[in-house]
Design a binder for these strands. Structure first.
Lengths: 237, 237
DNA sequence: TAAATAGTGTCTTTAAGACATTATCGC
DNA sequence: GCGATAATGTCTTAAAGACACTATTTA
């Protein structure tokens, strides 16, 4: 027996049963990259963890759906939201033909709040079994974040407005899973053209005060670093 | 008056009126990057040029739709097909709520055939007015291709199975719009780890015969070149 | 003043830029 | 042998790797 939801449009053709949007919310927590999951109470996949997505309404742009679902589950807006990709195989959802558009959503680690609504932060390398094709979607989100980390200002979403080099370094390390040599890290990030010193410093614990930096542009942007497709012709006789 | 198509699912909710897939078929032709367009005869946008997409059926994976539409229009299969992204704003299609998934499709310049079915190759920097949001989709496709050119083996889709360095160089130049210095081009492409010499050569016109290369892997892969996120810690006491 | 943390300077290594030179064809 | 095209070699320049060292804080 199949109790799949079906749909038909006013021209008589079969239509998708619905359309969903899911944010893959990532944040570095205690040195490791985490993803925000919610428990699923209904079938299918009751009892598993899933991404906090939901159905789009016909008057909503998909980013709005992703943003709305995120806010409902965490109370925060995403600092950074970009489309990941769509998953539309006919059998990806047992309920019927329901394509989904996945979004990568990044929020400042500082504004994270303890779980409400049962939502939970889970390390991306320790995922439980997820419902639907959400494990694949999380993997795609992590890959995108890692891939763009040094080539764009995507980290805007993961750092506060002003931050120190060591702070940025710890965030980058949590995402990439490697340990950077501090002085080279500083040089690379400065040379990337993505950040600039504010001239201010912070002190707190022991040690020399750290200089505060900010992103030159908080809108999505690519790194200015020139590494580097092959040389173009300059002088040729 | 609105004659938009609407749809409702068996659970009583509004559903998308349909779902489409569109391939952005790119190929270098006579030194310039071209995109495959078809004339649109029906409203909306009758008389404009559009991408050769079409409606998905409920039992079809979206890549299959994109591939099928491509074959219907050109008679060839894509060598390379990757999802670009989705466009799902409620008002993107005057006919109704019809999200679309766009695909980047690359085909070997050698198997291109003269236009059939009225399809036409148009230089991407000389586009006429396109219907729907297809101008934006083409731009996104071109950007993706350019962005991945040196960092992946995406050029697999644009070159024959065996190719010479000058041949590859001309293809790369058509895509990026710059002129590469031949010997450095060779060095970079060899060092990328993406291609290897076959040991064979071709002769034809005048001049020294060119060595034939092939891609080490024809499946999607990233370049091995190490350029380069900052150094990781090696020796620390 | 010691421990802790942040920041600077610099030498080495590697990759890219810019050619000049050499090799091998068809005519 | 000559023009045409492909391939190799090499010197210069720039960026990344690998630290040692200096600067400021709190306890």
């Amino acid at each position: 027996m199949s109790n799949r939801i079906t749909a038909r449009n006013s021209a008589g053709f079969t239509a998708p049963a619905g359309m969903t949007a899911v944010p893959v919310v990532l944040a570095p927590l205690s040195g490791r990259l985490h993803v925000l999951l919610v428990p699923r109470s209904e079938d299918p996949f009751a009892g598993t963890w899933v991404l906090p997505g939901g159905f789009m309404s016909p008057d909503e742009r998909p980013e709005e759906t992703a943003q709305r679902k995120l806010t409902e589950k965490t109370g925060v807006g995403a600092v950074y939201l970009e489309q990941l990709q769509s998953y539309a195989d006919p059998d990806r959802d047992p309920r019927g033909w329901i394509p989904t558009i996945a979004y990568l959503a990044l929020i400042d680690a500082a504004v994270l709040r303890p779980d409400e609504h049962g939502a939970r932060w889970v390390p991306v390398d320790r995922l439980p079994a997820l419902g639907f094709d959400h494990a694949r979607i999380v993997a795609d989100g992590v890959e995108r974040l890692r891939g763009k980390l040094w080539w764009s200002n995507i980290a805007v979403g993961l750092l506060p407005e002003r931050f120190t080099m060591p702070q940025a370094r710890r965030v980058f390390e949590a995402i990439s899973g490697v340990t950077y040599e501090p002085s080279n890290f500083r040089r690379e990030l400065e040379q990337s053209g993505l950040v600039r010193a504010t001239g201010r410093t912070v002190r707190g614990g022991p040690g020399r005060p750290a200089a505060l930096y900010e992103f030159a542009d908080r809108r999505p942007a690519w790194s200015l670093r020139r590494s580097r497709p092959p040389a173009t012709v300059r002088h040729r006789t």
